[in-house]
């Protein structure tokens, strides 16, 4: 495992825990897109179907269990425990606009036409765009709380660090995964605007506000 990947994974864990921490301590899901979290939950479940069929390492299995359980917990907090605080009326992005294309693409572009491989490709494609409802919500309400901004930054950094990991693996191991790399680049590019606002505002101690 490359250092970039380890840093990426830790950034991913940090993002998930930050979000849970925010919702739990403020007892509120305000400003958080339930749709994005629901799609991330679908991403983990459809990608980690191999949890019981192919063992890679204790590290891999632990992370998979952590991602699935933290994601299910997040969805539960948003849609059940703190449902009253969830801004459903600002969370207007249509999930089928990304789920259907991700599924169609997975049926066309996969490493083998098997249930596991199609499910894996679907999860990779869906992950690339699952953040759209959240970014759309930030744009719509015009701002994000600082902790939500830190969450988005950690989540964006995760795939950006994976890109460095893929470059490293390509040069040193000859490893190249076109599906993951393509989706990962799209995923990172989607955070472009947000990264800019994060560095120019949040880091300087201001709240993240999108200009009208």
């Amino acid at each position: 495992m490359t250092l970039f990947r380890l840093a990426g994974d830790l950034s991913h864990v940090l993002a998930i825990l930050l979000l849970l921490y925010k919702i739990w301590t403020t007892k509120s899901a305000a400003g958080i897109s339930g749709k994005t979290q629901l799609m991330f939950c679908m991403v983990y479940v459809t990608r980690y179907l191999d949890l019981f069929t192919s063992f890679i390492s204790v590290y891999n299995s632990t992370m998979k269990v952590l991602f699935i359980s933290a994601s299910v917990a997040t969805v539960y907090l948003i849609y059940f425990k703190f449902k009253a605080t969830y801004d459903g009326n600002h969370d207007t992005f249509r999930m089928e606009f990304v789920i259907v294309p991700a599924l169609i693409l997975a049926l066309i572009w996969n490493y083998a036409f098997t249930f596991f491989e199609i499910s894996w490709a679907f999860s990779i494609f869906l992950e690339a765009v699952a953040i759209l409802p959240q970014l759309f919500m930030v744009t719509k309400t015009g701002e994000a709380e600082n902790i939500t901004s830190h969450y988005l930054f950690a989540l964006g950094s995760y795939r950006a660090l994976y890109i460095l990991n893929w470059i490293d693996r390509y040069y040193f191991e000859g490893h190249w995964d076109p599906i993951a790399v393509t989706a990962g680049i799209v995923q990172t590019v989607l955070y472009g605007d947000f990264f800019y606002l994060y560095f120019t505002r949040v880091i300087k101690g201001r709240k993240l506000q999108v200009l009208p």
Binding site: R5, D9, H12, D50, S54, I56, N60, M63, K64, F67, Y111, A112, E117, W120, Y162, N165, H175, D177, I179, A180
Partner: peptide
């Protein structure tokens, strides 16, 4: 082996 290699990341 090829298939395994694609799924060693998270």
């Amino acid at each position: 082996k090829e298939q395994q290699q694609h799924h060693d990341e998270l």
